[in-house]
Amino acid sequence: MAGTDLVMYEEEFHLIDAELQRLHNQANAKVVFLVDKNGQLIASVGETKGIDTTSLASLTAGNIAATGGMAKLLGEKEFSILFHEGEKDNIHISIIGQRVILVVIFDQRSSLGLVRLRVKKSSEVLTGIFETMQVKSEQDKAKGKTSASPFAEITDEDIDNLFG
C-alpha cells in the first residue's frame, strides 16, 4: 500500500491549531487552513462561516496536484508556492514538508509580503509537528498498537446502518 494512513491525535491537533491561530493573527489573514495532499481538510481557523471548506480543500489539493504535474513535465520537483490574486480576496498556497498544504486567504488588510514572511515561519513549526506525528504513528505500528483502531470491532450491521 502506498504511504501510510494519516492518524491525528488530540495532542498534535492542538499544536497545529495553535500554530494556525498564530499565523492567522500575525499575517492579518481572513482564513487559514491546512489540507492533506489528498484533499482532506485537517484544520481551519478564522472566518470560515459561509465558506465551504470541504470543497475548498478538495479543489486546493486538485490545484496542487495539477501544478505538481506541470512541475514534473518541466523537470522541477514541485512548485512549492501558488498565489491567486482576486479583486478583494487573495489566496496563498504552500506545500509543507511535501505532505500537507497550507492555505492562507487574505484581503487588503494584509499584504503578500507579510503573508509570505509569516507562512515561512509557520512552515518550519508545522513541519516539525508533522515529523513528530509520523514518528509516533510508525512507533505505534511497530508496537502493533493498531488494535486500538475504532474500527476493529465494526460489523456488517454498523455499515448497513450508515446507509439507512
Binding site: 500500500m1 502506498a2 504511504g3 501510510t4 494519516l6 491525535y9 491537533f13 482532506q40 485537517i42
Partner: peptide, 15 residues
C-alpha cells in the same frame, strides 16, 4: 490513504 482524526472524531475516506 484514509485520514483518521481522533481530535474531531472523524474518518475521511476517498472513493
Amino acid at each position: 490513504m484514509s485520514f483518521i482524526n481522533y481530535s474531531s472524531r472523524e474518518i475521511n475516506v476517498k472513493l
